[in-house]
Amino acid sequence: MVRRLLLTLASLVLAANAAFAQGKPVLTVYTYGSFAGKYGPGKIVKERFEETCGCELNWVTAEDAGSLVGRLRLEGADTKADVVLGLDVNLAAEAKSLNAFAPHGLDMQDLSLPIAWNDDTFVPFDWGYYAFVYDSDKLPNPPKSLKELVENPNGPKVVLQDPRTSAPGLGLLLWMQKVYGDKAGDAWAQLKPRIVTFTKGWSEAYGLFLKGEADMVMSYTTSPAYHIVVEKKNNYKAAIFSEGHYLQVEIAGMTRTTKQPELAKTFMAFVLSKPFQSAMPEGNWMMPAKAPATDLPDAFQHLGQPQKALLFTPEEVQQNRRAFTDVWLNATAR
């Protein structure tokens, strides 16, 4: 009976997919859950792309960037993905080493990233600076630099993410390395008494911060825009640090195994076009990768702007991540 039920269920889904596909080609895009969810930009992107492509865009989601790569690795050459949207640039080298992606062949000029971009495999679609977010009603004088945060024994308490399970966690690990270099271990040890906890993912940490468990949370400079636009609250702010901020770039790539390379290419180009880019700020709460500053919504124009972007190359991250993690572990795990 179990088998029959399963077969029925599977065939129902397949039938639904087949009906979907009738006549029009289907472009399957893997992305993370909140991108394609109710409040994410997925719906708008799908509508706008389908207006011009003569195709169906089908989102397939996994929980987060790590799950996307893991799933791609598991599926290997059988993957149904034509495009994967939402990888983290810090894990780009690992993703590339899967040998699953094809060159995009697009021109990467005129991007609005704070760094030059010349990767031939991945296209950046949005970005943001990692930053510590705080409630200005409760913390009127936030630290002015990462060093001040780390070295002031009476400084604010922070909630962070585990670098082994989450992108912002990895982001802070790399940020500390950029600022402290060989002394990163000591810096972690200095900060440790004021770390409330390291959560599994961004969501838990941000939730704990909103519930008042910590004075600051590791998040993005763009997080306050959400509170301003949706909740009409102006008290959440991102602290701007003088050393510069580590950069988060979200990237997309088309698979080597896609059966419709032309359509996939069209989508990759669409990613950098206005219809897609204009959905990023208030859909994904990140900065668009290609848009003039004047196109930004109000709330985004007035966000604090870091003076300097910090970023390791994906290869550097791949080579050193284990060592950096061990430094962090030794310093924070007593």
Binding site: G33, G37, Y39
Partner: peptide
């Protein structure tokens, strides 16, 4: 989790 990921 999806809603949490969108700040909701």
């Amino acid at each position: 989790y999806e809603r949490l990921g969108s700040y909701r």
